[in-house]
Write a protein that binds this DNA or RNA. Structure first.
Length: 367
DNA sequence: TCTGGGGTCCTAGGACCC
DNA sequence: TCTGGGGTCCTAGGACCC
């Protein structure tokens, strides 16, 4: 992968010597090979070896790679790859099971460190990344300080993207990895991104990229110059406007630290051997529904819609949704609703994956 | 060759009411 | 017999992210 632009002067921010006025910057902090890095803290003997974290750590099972170490990535192993394939590509890799509580604890220490930065507004994006909004006269110095603070507090390395918008900061991080910093602003956006395909943008995947290409928009520069009305016609009022802004690197400039409120909780499981009978399916749905209801109950918010996700062998996924007559915590109601959706599919093939998701009543949405 | 599990947001279109 | 718009609610499904 040759995604790194040359580290020109644009890669280094204005130095904070005399005369620079403090201004607001967005920093995107992203942990390097997070799950693997956490594992290496407790297994230092594995440093330098190809390490793969995924599933239950058994590469003969149906599961995928959550995170691969840089050594494993050099051998073609990446997140999302089936563990069996990872094993084939890299038979001498060490396979470790996913250990959620440990990563959650590490994540909490990272986020606490970011929040402890004076003046920082922290918007958490996931386990291993966050935006930090901050006033500084030298964002590179600030980024370096944050990387050192995170390393000191957790023993973990991260990379930092610096930008004048969230989108630019987020995209900048990739150019800084690993253990580095990169700056992307309105001044170097087109120079760095203009000739890249639209899929290099955050939020443009293969499908949107193909649809853009079909209307003559191939690169980020093409998108930035595109006619907004044409995009609105093709993608709708919200997405059309969003895409043009994205092409220009625009959008939000301030992280939002409002605490995150879940809309839904879901559980899904890929079964090691396919489910073939109605009883097996009903029993599995019952177990998933129980866990979903437990999660919703913890927040004291009832389930108002039930989603069923089914993957039949070999690879064909359905999702169905049904609103309940009234919000509930009754596991039987959730189970029966999911099962009714399953029966409505009227498909006799073996089931490989089942998922149940409960959409919850909004916290202020009383009923 | 085999495809996780946790989420979010958006659009389209039908049903229904005024 | 043919026909408005506007609004809301609902389901289906697509797409994307980590």
């Amino acid at each position: 992968m040759c995604r790194h632009p040359p580290r020109t002067q644009a890669a280094v921010g204005p130095r904070g010597h005399n005369g620079w006025v403090s201004q607001h910057w967005v920093l995107h902090v992203d942990m390097d090979q997070f799950l693997v890095a956490v594992e290496l803290l407790r297994h230092p003997e594995l440093v330098g070896r190809p390490v793969v974290v995924g599933g239950r750590g058994d590469p003969t099972e149906r599961a995928v790679v959550s995170t691969a170490s840089y050594e494993a990535r050099e051998r073609g192993v990446h997140s999302g790859l089936a563990l069996k394939l990872a094993w084939r590509r890299c038979p001498d890799a060490v396979f470790l099971p996913v250990d959620f509580p440990v990563y959650e604890a590490a994540s909490a220490r990272v986020m606490a460190t970011l929040r402890a930065t004076p003046g920082a507004v922290v918007e958490v994006l996931g386990w291993d990344e966050a935006f930090v909004g901050i006033e500084t006269d030298d964002p590179v110095v600030t980024a370096t300080a944050i990387r050192a603070a995170v390393l000191d507090a957790t023993g973990l390395h991260c990379s930092v993207g610096i930008g004048d918008t969230l989108v630019r900061a987020k995209i900048a991080t990739d150019f800084g990895k690993p253990q580095g910093t990169f700056q992307l602003t309105r001044d170097n956006w087109m120079e760095v991104m203009g000739e890249r395909p639209t899929t290099a943008l955050w939020g443009v995947g293969a499908k949107i990229g193909a649809r853009l290409q079909a209307i003559g928009i191939r690169t980020v520069a093409d998108l930035a110059a595109a006619d907004e009305d044409a995009l609105v016609t093709s993608f709708g009022p919200s997405s059309g406007g969003h895409l043009v802004r994205l092409g220009r690197g625009g959008g939000r400039t301030r992280p939002d630290d409002t605490p995150w409120v879940a809309r839904a909780h879901g559980r899904e499981t890929t079964y090691q051997s396919d489910l073939t009978t109605a009883d097996e399916v009903r029993a599995a749905l019952s177990e998933l529904a129980q866990r979903v209801v437990d999660d919703c109950r913890k927040e004291d918010r009832a389930v108002q819609r039930v989603h069923l996700k089914v993957r039949f062998a070999p690879f064909f996924t359905f999702t169905k949704v049904r609103k309940l007559p009234e919000p509930t915590w009754d596991v039987d109601v959730v189970t029966q609703t999911a099962y009714a959706l399953f029966l409505a599919l009227d498909d006799q093939r073996p089931v490989r994956l089942l998922g149940v998701r409960g959409e919850m009543v909004p916290p202020d949405g009383g009923y």
